[in-house]
């Protein structure tokens, strides 16, 4: 049983209790993904599986046989950051930085969801094109907590990246 993480293939663990989060951090050393609450409440562990954002703490690694996972290490690097990573730097979208990998993974998926016109609880019309207002961003990012309270700047960063990518 194997799993692909950031385009590299790995064997899955023998112990079925290992969460995808612990597999990433402990077994293959990708410590960019963070453990906050370990109960799906904080979003620090957010990664993309098949392009969809999920809480890696609430899923077993063995259930991802054949899946393709993207973590913060696969989204960008120091020398080649993604548009969202650049926007978080420019807009000071963090203080301590612990929640940031989860915020950026989550926001990366958010931009795809907007492009696909998936509505949210904040959307007035379920079927209309989504206008990426602050309210939409806040609702869509509600699964990612920031104890430092950098929310205003996180919203600004996501908005700026969306604008840049649309240009």
């Amino acid at each position: 049983m194997t799993i692909t993480v950031n385009d590299k293939q790995y064997d899955l663990p023998d112990d079925p209790r290992v969460s995808l989060l612990d597999f990433l951090r402990r077994d293959i050393g990708l410590t960019g993904t963070k453990k906050g609450c370990d109960h799906g409440q904080c979003g620090a562990c957010t990664v993309l599986v098949g392009g969809m954002r999920i809480n890696s703490c609430l899923t077993l690694a063995v259930m991802h046989d054949g899946d393709s996972v993207q973590t913060i290490e696969g989204i960008g690097t120091e020398t080649d950051p993604s548009p969202l990573q650049r926007a978080f730097l420019e807009h000071d979208g963090y203080q301590c930085g612990y929640c940031t990998p989860g915020q950026i993974c989550s926001a990366t998926a958010l931009l795809d969801e907007i492009a696909n016109n998936w509505p949210s609880d904040a959307s007035d019309d379920l079927e209309a094109a989504i206008d990426l207002t602050d309210e939409e961003i806040r609702e869509r990012m509600s699964g990612n907590l920031c104890r430092c309270g950098a929310y205003v700047n996180i919203v600004a960063a996501i908005k700026a990246a969306a604008k840049e990518m649309a240009a």
Binding site: G40, G43, T46, M52, R53, I54, N55, L58, T59, S106, A109, L110, E113, P119, S120, D121, S123, L126, R140, S142, G143
Partner: peptide, 16 residues
Amino acid sequence: LARAILAGATQQLRNK
């Protein structure tokens, strides 16, 4: 139904 689902949990949880 769409509204009820979207009113629950987070995008990460609804994806799973």
